[in-house]
Simulated scan of single mutants.
Amino acid sequence: MTDRTLPPGFQLPELRSPVRTIGRHTFDFDHRIAVMAIVNRTPDSFFDQGATFALDRAVEAAVRADEHGADWVDIGGVPFAPGPELPADEEASRVVPVVAALAQQSDVVISVDTFRPEVAAAAIAAGASVINDTTGIHDERLADVVADSDATLVITHSLASPRRPLMRPQYADVAGEVRDFLLERVDLAIARGVPEDRIIVDPGHDLNKNTVQTLEVTRRLGEVVSLGFPVLAAVSNKDFIGESLARPKSERLAGSIAAATACAMLGARIVRMHAVPESVDAMRMLEAILGWRDPVDPVHNL
């Protein structure tokens, strides 16, 4: 039986299905905080600005993330930020070869960041086991693709159409509205055949939200956690960190680790991060504090 007694300040979510088999791994999210690494095959990605756009560099980065302890790797071919539409076949040509190469070299969980059903289908066929849709199932056919597979679906809060701006987003109750949106989209996914034990939710830090709104969603993350699905916190190097600390993207590591740790303490069970070794250490340390894992080398004062 799980010991649900935690120190003050920590929240252990009441998950409907805490034990999840995703790809070739099984996670007990009552005792595990997974680290999702980020690999972008785009020339204009938010953080790395095309550093892994070349296929060989993308595959190398994905394999290295696995070697550094990432639980899974999230591969994207289109930025979330507003911009011109990229044809689906071009998006697929960016992500599918990385998925296929990584699946041959590693058993790490592979997810693909896409809102297009045709790209999702091709990625799943190539070896992806998670579809990370940052548009909240804008195209409902995406749920059909996931339902017809063994893949897991990440449902994210965002309001604008894909790659379209939402200027000056307004919310009467930002955390409550995020929770309600996610519940509505979860119900849609289930109605279209996605089992609830293959659903993860993401409050969408910074996505169609300003910094003050994102900070409030973070403080009130327990309201999203209360839905009963594992929560993904994609906080790494985002503008709410930069604006909170007055730090450029290159100097946001400490803030990112702090934000990820706070989210995990408040019930998030997956953190999406650029700096893999540091993030893995932070989450494994948090698990040790919680008593979920033994120290690797406990010799001090023995």
Results as ranks from 00 to 15, higher is better:
Asp48Trp: 13
Arg32Pro: 01
Val39Cys: 06
Ser279Leu: 12
His138Met: 11
Asn210Val: 12
Phe29Thr: 11
Gly83Glu: 02
Asp3Trp: 14
Ala101Cys: 10
Gln49Pro: 01
Asp187Glu: 13
Ser45His: 07
Glu118His: 12
Ser279Phe: 09
Val201Cys: 07
Glu140Phe: 06
Glu196Thr: 13
His157Cys: 12
Val299Pro: 03
Ala70Arg: 06
Arg94Val: 05
Met1Lys: 09
Pro203Val: 11
His68Ala: 14
Val35Ile: 06
Trp292Thr: 04
Tyr171Lys: 07
Phe240Met: 03
Ala260Asp: 00
Ala275Arg: 03
Val95Tyr: 13
Ala120Cys: 07
Val98Gln: 03
Thr5Ala: 15
Val271Ala: 02
Met283Ala: 03
Leu159Tyr: 01
Arg293Gly: 09
Met1Tyr: 11
Gly9Pro: 00
Ala262Pro: 10
Gly204Asn: 01
Ile200Thr: 04
Gly242Lys: 08
Asn301Gln: 12
Val225Ile: 11
Val174Trp: 06
Phe46Gly: 05
Ser244Ile: 04
Val39Gln: 03
Ala258Tyr: 04
Pro82Gln: 10
Glu140Cys: 02
Phe80Leu: 02
Lys209Ala: 05
Ala126Gln: 12
Trp72His: 08
Arg24Cys: 08
Val186Pro: 00
Val296Met: 14
Ala81Tyr: 06
Gly77Asn: 02
Ala126His: 10
Ala62Asn: 02
Leu227Cys: 00
Leu227Ala: 04
Gly127Met: 09
Leu86Arg: 06
Asp28Lys: 13
Ile270Pro: 00
Asn237Val: 04
Val271Arg: 01
Ala275Ser: 06
Met1Ala: 14
His25Ser: 15
Ser279Val: 10
Asp150Thr: 15
Met36Cys: 07
Met283Ile: 07
Ala282Trp: 11
Arg179Leu: 08
